[in-house]
Simulated assay, not measured.
Amino acid sequence: MNPKAQFMHQLQQHEDEKAAGKKRLEKDISEFQSRMKALADEIKGWLRDIPQVTVKVEQTTLVDPTIPANLSPQEFYQICTILVTAGDRSLRFKPTCLYLFGCTGEVELEYRGLHSAPRYKAYMWEPNVPAGKWALIGLEQNKSAPQELDEAAFFNLLSRLIR
C-alpha cells in the first residue's frame, strides 16, 4: 500500500472510531437520564405509603467534565435530581458525571440538615454489582465495598434523616 493510500485508510479508520465513540457517548447519556428517572420512580414507589416523607424530582443541567471534547461540542446535558425530604432534613441524589474510574453514571448523595453526614456515591454501572442495578459506595475512612442500592439500603440511608 502506498503512503497516500495508507494515510487515507488511517484517516477513514479514525473517522469511523470517532463516529462509534460519539454514538456510544449519546447512548450512555441517554441511559444515565433514563436510569435516573427510573430510580426516581422506584424511590417514589418505596415511599408511597409514608406521607411524612416527600419526593421531588427536578430537571437540571449537568455540566460534565468527563465528556470527551472530541466527541461532543457540549459538555452538558439535562438530567433529573431526586430530593427526599423528611421534616427539615433531606437526602439529594445529584448526578455529577458520566464516566469515572471504570464506573459509569456517578451520583452524589447529599444529606442536608445533619451536623455530621456520611458521604455516599451511587453508580449506575459498577463492575461488582449486577448489571442494571445501582451500586452504593460509602466514602468514609474505610470506604465500603459496593453494594446494591435496593429498598433495604435505601431505607438505611433514609434512617439518618430521623435520628
Score class of each variant (00 low, 15 high):
residue 70 N to V: 09
residue 163 R to A: 14
residue 85 T to Y: 03
residue 95 P to L: 06
residue 125 W to A: 14
residue 102 G to M: 03
residue 65 P to R: 12
residue 65 P to I: 04
residue 12 Q to Y: 10
residue 131 A to Y: 13
residue 72 S to W: 08
residue 39 L to E: 01
residue 154 F to G: 02
residue 100 L to W: 13
residue 159 S to I: 02
residue 119 R to G: 00
residue 160 R to D: 00
residue 50 I to H: 12
residue 135 A to R: 04
residue 93 F to S: 02
residue 162 I to T: 10
residue 11 L to T: 09
residue 116 S to A: 14
residue 158 L to W: 05
residue 12 Q to M: 14
residue 125 W to C: 10
residue 96 T to K: 06
residue 72 S to D: 09
residue 104 T to S: 10
residue 119 R to E: 03
residue 10 Q to V: 07
residue 60 T to A: 14
residue 24 R to Y: 06
residue 51 P to M: 04
residue 151 E to S: 07
residue 122 A to D: 00
residue 62 L to T: 03
residue 124 M to Q: 10
residue 42 E to P: 02
residue 112 R to H: 15
residue 135 A to L: 04
residue 65 P to V: 04
residue 142 N to K: 11
residue 87 G to M: 05
residue 92 R to A: 14
residue 131 A to I: 11
residue 45 G to W: 03
residue 44 K to G: 07
residue 20 A to K: 15
residue 127 P to A: 06
residue 3 P to I: 11
residue 76 F to H: 14
residue 151 E to P: 01
residue 40 A to R: 06
residue 101 F to K: 13
residue 106 E to W: 08
residue 7 F to E: 15
residue 21 G to E: 07
residue 113 G to E: 10
residue 67 I to V: 10
residue 115 H to T: 14
residue 125 W to L: 13
residue 37 K to Q: 12
residue 105 G to L: 03
residue 41 D to R: 11
residue 38 A to F: 12
residue 126 E to T: 08
residue 159 S to E: 05
residue 117 A to M: 04
residue 33 Q to H: 07
residue 111 Y to E: 01
residue 42 E to I: 12
residue 153 A to P: 01
residue 33 Q to S: 06
residue 73 P to Y: 10
residue 102 G to H: 02
residue 126 E to F: 11
residue 140 E to Y: 06
residue 9 H to V: 15
residue 9 H to N: 14
residue 120 Y to S: 03
residue 130 P to E: 10
residue 134 W to Q: 00
residue 16 D to K: 15
residue 63 V to S: 15
residue 103 C to T: 11
residue 146 P to G: 07
residue 82 I to K: 06
residue 124 M to L: 12
residue 11 L to R: 14
residue 40 A to C: 04
residue 68 P to W: 03
residue 42 E to V: 13
residue 82 I to F: 06
residue 117 A to C: 04
residue 91 L to H: 09
residue 79 I to K: 08
residue 130 P to R: 14
residue 83 L to E: 09
residue 119 R to D: 00
residue 57 V to A: 08
residue 108 E to G: 06
residue 54 T to M: 08
residue 41 D to W: 08
residue 22 K to S: 13
residue 39 L to M: 04
residue 70 N to W: 12
residue 82 I to P: 03
residue 63 V to M: 13
residue 150 D to F: 08
residue 38 A to W: 11
residue 75 E to H: 15
residue 59 Q to N: 12
residue 136 L to D: 02
residue 22 K to F: 06
